[in-house]
Each structure stands twice: as structure tokens, then as C-alpha cells.
Design a protein around this nucleic acid. Structure first.
Lengths: 129, 129
DNA sequence: CGTTTACTACGAAAACCTTCGTTGACAAAC
DNA sequence: GTTTGTCAACGAAGGTTTTCGTAGTAAACG
């Protein structure tokens, strides 16, 4: 290991990662097309951001063709865990219970979703860990 | 209402809010003393940050005495909800279940804590919303 | 009083993030 | 082969965050 030192993605970077996680390897143009409606930024903005992310090690790219292909270098799960862990420390004093409470009350969950979370608890308790 | 437009606290600001939430109204010196070990920043840094937070509306202060007394102008619950809601959208596509999963696996929880969360679920289900 | 101490205010510097205009290279179309 | 369009690279500007040095001011003390 050695990847613990990967920087925390910024808001703009996270938007790009979202696209790459969902669609797999993409060109800048594809990412830009996906993001344009929601962010309204131009092509060069997205390009620049992705180049910076490459330098930071958040993305990888294949530049053997004229049109470069980018992909995420960090996994979704790992990044989500990093972000939530950080929030846990910074805003919740490490109390997972409080975080869960805030999460569930910030957005009304469907009963189905609550049931799923309950199932999750069962698994966690069983497998201890 | 009208407070929905309060800015999202930055990392440094959050550290200050943590202290004020825990200890109630404080002088800059008190906040600084609390933060110094963990952040290593000087007195004027903390002061400046708190002054900026005052401008942003994140803090209130009583300056009737020479030594000003600051307190949080945003509630802990509300801020936590704001932050977690944002993270939910930006990194979890709105899936509370995934966020809870990440939270619980990012830090091993004690069985006691798991039980508490379970109780929380019960309450949420009972009281709906 | 005059000196020391404690505190706030101000300004500026450094780092980072976001944005975009411009340029040059390459390829496809005519 | 020239024109037209697409793409990556570069650099710069504007904004925000974080940091601190310096200076001014009120209080405390002798």
C-alpha cells in the first residue's frame, strides 16, 4: 500500500469522478457533455480539471491515440469511505450514530430503504469485524 | 426562514464550530487553546478565521467587553445535516443506504453503537418521516 | 504617569480551485 | 493541397482559504 496519501477530491473533481465511475473510461468530450447541463462549464475547464486530476493521481489516461481516454484511478468505494470518514471526524466527533441520524433525517427515506439499512446492520453484527 | 443561504463551513471553520458547540460561548483565546494541539496554528490565524465567520453569519459575538465572546450562530444539528446532505448528493447519488454502509465500514463500530443505530431505525420507522 | 501585557484590527502573502482564451498540432473533408 | 474542425497544452485571471506579521488600543500594574 501507499495510496493513503491520495488527495481528497474537490467538488468539481468529484463531479468528474461520478461520470467516470458510472460510464467507465471516457474522453474529455464525453465527460464534458455529461456535466455541461448540471455545471454549465466549458470544454477547456473540464479538460484542465482532468489534467490536474491526472497529476494528482486521481485519474489515469491512455494517450496512445490522438483523443485521450481517461479513467478513474481511485475506486468509488474507497473514495466514498475516505470522504465519509473525514466528515465523521470533522463534523461528528467520530460518532457514526450521529452521522447516520443526520443522513436519514436530511432526506426522508422510503421504508424499503430503511429495511435495507436494517439488513445491513444484521450483516455487520453477524460478521462482527 | 432565510437561513438556507448560509455558506458551507470550510474545514478550518468546522474545527472552530466544533469547539463552540462543545463548550458554548468562548473567547478567541479559549478556542485557540483548544485547537492549537490538533492544528498547530497561531492565535491570529484563529482570530482572523473567526472574524471571517462572523461576517459570513456563522458566528455571533458580544463585543461589549474588551475581550469579545463568540458563539456559534448555526446549530450543530442543522450544520451536520447540511454537510451530510451535500455529501449524499455529491458522492453517493442520493443513496442513504450506501452512505450508511460507507460510514459503518470506514470505522469499526462497537456492537453497542450498532444497537443504538438499530434503535434509531425503529424510531424512524415508527414516527415515519 | 509610564511600562508591560492582552487583545483586536488590518493587510498582505501563499496556496489552491475554478474558469476560460489562445495557441499549435493533427486529421478529415473538400 | 488547402481549408475546416477537433483536440490537448499552456498560461493567466479571479476567487477563496489559510496563514501570519505588524500595529494600534485598552487595561493592569508598579
Amino acid at each position: 500500500m501507499a495510496k493513503s496519501t491520495l488527495p481528497k477530491p474537490t467538488e468539481g473533481e468529484l463531479a468528474i469522478l461520478r461520470v467516470l465511475w458510472a460510464r467507465g473510461p471516457c474522453t474529455v468530450r464525453e465527460v464534458q457533455a455529461e456535466l455541461e447541463p448540471e455545471r454549465g462549464t466549458g470544454y477547456t475547464t473540464t479538460l484542465k480539471l482532468m489534467q490536474i486530476m491526472l497529476e494528482k493521481g486521481l485519474l489515469r489516461r491512455d494517450d496512445s491515440q490522438r483523443t485521450h481516454i481517461y479513467q478513474a484511478a481511485v475506486s468509488r468505494d474507497r473514495t466514498q469511505q475516505q470522504l465519509v470518514g473525514q466528515l465523521l471526524d470533522q463534523a461528528f466527533g467520530g460518532s457514526a450514530r450521529q452521522l447516520v441520524l443526520a443522513a436519514l433525517s436530511s432526506k426522508p427515506s422510503t421504508p424499503a430503504e430503511l429495511a435495507e439499512i436494517r439488513k445491513l446492520l444484521d450483516e455487520l453484527e453477524r460478521g462482527s469485524r
